[in-house]
Design a protein around this nucleic acid. Sequence first.
DNA 1: TTACTGTCAACTGTTGACAATTTACAAAAT
DNA 2: ATTTTGTAAATTGTCAACAGTTGACAGTAA
Lengths: 221, 221
Amino acid sequence: MKFKPLENLDEQVAEYLSNRIIRGQLSPGERILETKLARELGVSRGPIRAALRILENKRLVKLVPRRGAQVSELSVSFIDRLYDILIELLALATRKAVQNRTRKDLTPIRRSLSKIEACALKGDTYDYYNAIFEFFVVEIEAAKDPLLARLLRDLEPSARRIQFASLARRKEDLKRNVVYFQDAVKYIEAGDPILADKVIRAYAQNEKEFALNNTRTHIKK
Amino acid sequence: MKFKPLENLDEQVAEYLSNRIIRGQLSPGERILETKLARELGVSRGPIRAALRILENKRLVKLVPRRGAQVSELSVSFIDRLYDILIELLALATRKAVQNRTRKDLTPIRRSLSKIEACALKGDTYDYYNAIFEFFVVEIEAAKDPLLARLLRDLEPSARRIQFASLARRKEDLKRNVVYFQDAVKYIEAGDPILADKVIRAYAQNEKEFALNNTRTHIKK
DNA sequence: TTACTGTCAACTGTTGACAATTTACAAAAT
DNA sequence: ATTTTGTAAATTGTCAACAGTTGACAGTAA
């Protein structure tokens, strides 16, 4: 049996809030009251405050001194800017994955591609996007760059949040999208950083445009 | 007179520690004891812990659950990876600056170029690098992208730390470096994102190589 | 000597209380 | 009606105390 590294309350609370924000159960702009949340979760305010700091780094909440925390907005311009950055960082990660991957890294990459393909076939939108995030996780693993990994991990919840907001409309998109990942794996296997970079950029760009066109109803500005 | 936004203790402590780490007054690997620091600064452990979370995001300290905080290491591979990311993000910021700048943005950009030139002429290495950071700050301001601005701001202390560690050897480098910024401003004024991108990439690449060759003595691995 | 085990001091994790600040709201003035 | 001012309640900031965990080290057994 594998014992957990005994997460402290900070991270547990952060995880809990993170999920609720991503799923839209907490709406943009909504205030998060420390006292109230502490009562609800049965912990003191200390861990709550630490959790809010964690979420601020992931851009899920906005922290204003002496005015507390609120769920961050999901504006068009934010989506725009997030994907601009994601395009560059994912492309960089892909190039690094091509260069630094060992043979062992290929196994999980191929496995997550299969998962993507399977979900696309079944039309299971929710799991499909989970599989895509998993793909990037293993790709980043292969890139052997902890700093880049962490930056991307910090941006991941925002990406998830955006995708969740447009999940309903994504069904027909699946099969068209799979091609990107099939190509990406092909070039990662072949060791071609330029084409792999290009494919991932194209995917992220496509994702960006889809998000911009399909989250309008959920967001503020 | 301009009143401060009444910083809370969290940020003041973070600022204090940040400076000490950047200047090498706290050495890599050194533990930071909450209780001791709290006594030294005359505050309780609450703000200290919050400050440590802030510094963790800036990668200045490493936080291990139940084992406290220690000053992060400055390894060759970290420098390598940091600049890889900086190259992409600064290039992106530069392109955005070219596209989104107003006429008003040009004034501080030109002013900080003058400062760079003046410091290079005087051979004032320390202020020279301050001026360079200032240049990027105003450039990012012109790029009109708060998300990108924040990512870069989070990485800034690490870059400063690296540059501080190799400051002594940088004197002869100054005049050669100025050209990059003169060119960058030229292309920003002319509205040429491709060449501006290229210049900044070249600068950052150059900076990276210099750092890698001149911080060896200060770092661990 | 070397490896194990138990104990203790030093820390971090968590809490509840108190102080300072902000917000909401009602009353007064324009 | 609209703005201003004053006051109370709600909320965040800070602290100090207690609980739980970790790491070091001395003592014991091989």
